[in-house]
Nucleic acid binder design. Structure first.
Lengths: 227, 227
DNA sequence: TCATTCGCTTAACAATTTGATAATACAAAT
DNA sequence: ATTTGTATTATCAAATTGTTAAGCGAATGA
């Protein structure tokens, strides 16, 4: 189970390189992480490796065709919830019905404008992808962004808002040193201007409440989280 | 988890009687409960009365057009989760993108074969299991979303509509902190603007009536339910 | 129809919590 | 020893929420 995964991953399988490239480009521009496959077998391979949130399948491909791929994937529990769209030049009714009945979530016929495709993809994600639980876990420390609770070895620790945001920021990338400026921008925003000591004070409060040695000062640079 | 697994209800809005009839017939054959509307205003009316799981909207209709209807419905919390499909002869890219961005879940261009339409509808429902309209139970607290009744250890507690919706929202995800904004959007909708104290007062009333220590304030963030 | 009740919202003020800063102490580096 | 940068503490201002009372309109009922 992945912990944080804000960027949606999409796998595209098509045997025409041009189409792959166009779709990939447009989806990446929209902020998605995209991988491609050139045929059915490669698609299954990539699906297992890449674990995408959405798979866009051409139907006519060398090796396994799209419907076979869809059926195979749907049999595996790991891909039970993965979104699957057919994107194909085959527009006959029978194939479309068969495609949808094989467990796909949509069926789009080529040619389709990139903009429309992107809109459809957005619409699918808007509806179906469960939001991230937002639980960060580092060792015995759990940071639940949804419940606004920090828990260490079973004990809940109550932090005030800024304290929580500060910790969540640092713990979001363990080991990374956050410059004071970065912290200010992320936690306080760019509009508010506060003195330099403010950060220190909040860091201290977090350290105190956690009673762990997990926030390290990097003198002259900033702070980092490390359990 | 799901309490009631009722027959899915579908509302179709189109100004062409023939189309209405064909679609209605095919969907009913598939076991859906279908109602129809002849124009935009009627669609909104029926939606409120009939509370469908899916709405199929023509775009070009007398009175309000489909996109307007979609926008209006999406503003109301009650229709936040209702599936909406556009079914239209307008196949230009701009309209399609606009339609999808107005919050629709799919966009199908006429003409479309009834079989394909049914397949698409099935695919949508396969994915989307409508939220429980039934009974939420948390410990000894029962919340009946259909009857608008809350029961604690055998005793019924009468809550007013807003109070009830507030409680149902919070109790729907115990532990999760709901931001004031989320609460406003979910309970009051995006079109109504109310002051900040309004939430507090309702929270207080719920707390008072339940006489349980189950709604926690997270200062600077929001409220959460925890029994 | 008129009166009453109920639910929703707001105003006003109290209570509480949080956040920012100053002042001072401390530590390491030069 | 001096400089530079951080830790600690106490304090005060600001932000946020709790509480009560009151106004208003819609629904209810005689």
């Amino acid at each position: 189970m992945s912990v944080t995964n804000t960027v949606k991953k999409i796998l595209i399988a098509d045997d025409e390189p041009d189409i792959l490239e166009i779709i990939q480009y447009n989806l990446q521009s929209e902020g998605y992480e995209v991988t491609t496959a050139k045929n059915g077998n490669e698609a299954i391979d990539m699906a297992k490796r890449f674990n995408p949130d959405l798979i866009i399948l051409d139907i006519m491909m060398p090796g396994r065709n799209g419907i076979e791929v869809c059926n195979l994937l749907r049999m595996q529990p790991a891909f039970k919830d993965t979104l699957i769209i057919f994107l194909t030049a085959l527009s006959d009714e029978g194939t479309e019905v068969k495609g949808l009945e094989s467990g796909a979530d949509d069926y789009i016929t080529k040619p389709v404008s990139p903009k429309v495709l992107v809109s459809k993809v957005n619409a699918l994600f808007r509806r179906f992808i469960k939001e991230d639980t937002g639980i960060l876990q580092i060792g015995d420390l759990k940071i639940d962004r949804e419940k606004y609770i920090v828990n260490y070895r079973g004990t809940d620790i109550i932090l005030a808002r800024k304290e929580f945001e500060l910790l969540a920021l640092l713990a979001g990338k363990p080991g990374k040193v956050f410059l004071r400026n970065e912290i200010l921008n992320q936690v306080w925003g760019t509009e508010v201007i506060v003195g330099d000591r403010t950060i220190d004070v909040h860091i201290r409060k977090v350290r105190q409440k956690l009673n762990l040695d997990c926030i390290t000062t990097v003198k002259g640079v900033g702070y980092k989280f490390d359990l």
